[in-house]
Structures are given as structure tokens and as C-alpha cells.
């Protein structure tokens, strides 16, 4: 099986997020990028398939943020090949443009299974995976917690539902899967191995083919939720407090 894993970098939430002067974008000067968490799981899922059933795993990323670092780390973890799509603006692309760019790049590659994270945290249209499925007109299942081969040209995926339930769905390849989590957490790759890989391997750099996408929704402003710092304190007698709590739960659909 040939698996392609698409990796995206997203802002690291460990750093305080700053909004730029326009008020509608993150200030990239202060950004630190990390691999998107669900992409990390998608890679792990691919590597598990490789370990358990044999597969060739190729990873692909757009050239912004720490793409090199992320791709080399993927090679160190066990990916067979790493493709870097160059010619990307410094701040990356919107998710739809990213999906379209990946689609163009995937055109020339023989791949049975495209795995990527079900969502990236940093955009309005976070679902690269689903949009790619839609654009490529391939079968698409998202929010998976496991992917297993299932007979010739098929995989069996578990799609998560709330409350711990899941659906088992058989998908015909080629297909796109939006991974939520791999059956086990992403493996650790020792620093020495990454360094070794950086010395001995090279990234396959390819010029990204510019993709046209429909006008995206316009961002009016970005802002921080106000009550992020301290809890909103509730006051009153025990009965009043109980009532207020019940109300909060009701508002969130959490009341029994």
C-alpha cells in the first residue's frame, strides 16, 4: 500500500498568540509553529500500518514554518520519503488553498491512501482532509481512531462518535482519511536519529503548482475571548448557586 501523509504546521499554543496590526491575522513574528496535532496522529497511523502490514509512507508538507524540521522528523520516525512543496508564502496558505495545492501535487503520485489530520486549529475552514476528499472526489471518512487494511484495496476505519461510540466503515481505496487519533500516541523519535536523518537524507523539493480556489470568507477580526483569564465568579445562596449552575449546563446542552 502506498500511503501519503499530508502534514501542516499550526501555531504553537504554548506561546501567547498576538494579533497583527490589521486585526484580522496572527502576528507571524511571534508565531512558533508545530505540527498539527491530528496530522501527527495521521503520520503515526500511517507508520503503524507500515509496521504491521507493510506499506510505503511518503509525507508531504507545504514549505512554511518549520516544514524542514517536521519532514525530517517524519523521516526519522519511519517515513520512506518526504516531499516539500516550495514557493509557498511565508505565512502559509489558507486551508482550502492548502488542500488545492496538495491536490495538484498528489496528481502525479501513485497513492492508495491519503491520511491527514481531521482538522487544523488555525483557520476558518480547518478541514484540509475533508476538503481534499471533496476536491478529488475520493471517498472520505473523517474523525477516525483506527485504520486497518481490509481485503484487497480496502481499509476498515473506526469513526468516532461522542460518548465513546464508533462506527466501523469499510472504505474502498484510493481514499482520503481524516485522522483524529492513531490507536497509539505518536512515537518518540530520539533527537540523535533526527540529526542523523538531517545529515544523511534529503527532502524531495517540488515547486507547488498555484491552485485557484473560490473567494474565501473574509475575516473581519480576530480577538481573544474576554473571560480567558479568570473564572467568572458566581454568587448567592446554595440554592441560587445550584440554579445558576443548572442554567449554565442547560445552555451548553449538558444538563441531564
Amino acid at each position: 500500500m502506498n500511503i501519503t501523509v499530508l502534514l501542516s504546521m499550526v501555531p504553537d499554543l504554548v506561546e501567547e498568540l498576538e494579533i497583527d496590526a490589521s486585526g484580522a491575522a496572527l502576528d507571524t513574528q511571534w508565531l512558533r509553529y508545530v505540527i498539527s496535532e491530528s496530522d501527527d496522529h495521521a503520520l503515526e497511523q500511517a507508520l503503524l500500518l507500515k509496521d504491521r502490514h507493510g506499506a510505503s509512507v511518503s509525507v508531504m508538507a507545504l514549505d512554511y514554518g518549520d516544514a524542514d524540521q517536521v519532514l525530517f522528523a517524519a523521516l526519522a520516525r519511519g517515513a520512506d520519503e518526504a516531499v516539500k512543496l516550495t514557493g509557498i508564502p511565508e505565512a502559509g496558505l489558507g486551508k482550502r488553498a492548502a488542500a488545492a495545492t496538495f491536490k495538484e501535487a498528489l496528481g502525479g503520485i501513485r497513492t492508495d491512501l491519503i491520511l491527514t489530520g481531521v482538522q487544523a486549529i488555525d483557520d476558518l475552514d480547518a478541514h484540509v482532509a475533508g476538503m481534499l476528499g471533496g476536491m478529488m472526489a475520493l471517498p472520505y471518512v473523517g474523525v477516525t481512531r483506527s485504520v486497518e487494511p481490509s481485503g484487497e484495496g480496502k481499509v476498515l476505519v473506526q469513526k468516532e462518535y461522542p460518548g465513546g461510540a464508533a462506527a466501523e466503515i469499510e472504505v474502498t481505496l484510493p481514499a482520503v482519511i481524516g485522522v483524529l487519533s492513531a490507536p497509539q500516541p505518536p512515537r518518540y523519535v530520539p533527537v540523535a536519529r533526527i540529526r542523523e536523518v538531517m545529515k544523511t537524507r534529503t527532502l524531495d523539493e517540488r515547486e507547488a503548482v498555484p491552485a485557484t480556489v473560490p473567494a474565501e470568507p473574509a475575516i473581519i477580526r480576530l480577538f481573544k475571548p474576554e473571560s480567558a483569564e479568570h473564572a467568572q465568579m458566581l454568587d448567592g445562596s446554595p440554592e441560587e448557586l445550584a440554579e445558576q449552575i443548572v442554567k449554565i449546563l442547560e445552555d451548553r446542552g449538558l444538563a441531564p
Binding site: 499554543l13 486549529i121 470568507p217 473574509a218 480576530l222
Partner: peptide, 12 residues
């Protein structure tokens, strides 16, 4: 967005 750390207002 960003794990609830940011809100984004957008229009279509």
C-alpha cells in the same frame, strides 16, 4: 480557533 484561545469573526 486555536483551541478556544482565539475567536474569529468572518463574513460571507
Amino acid at each position: 480557533m486555536c483551541g478556544g484561545k482565539l475567536l474569529c469573526e468572518a463574513e460571507a
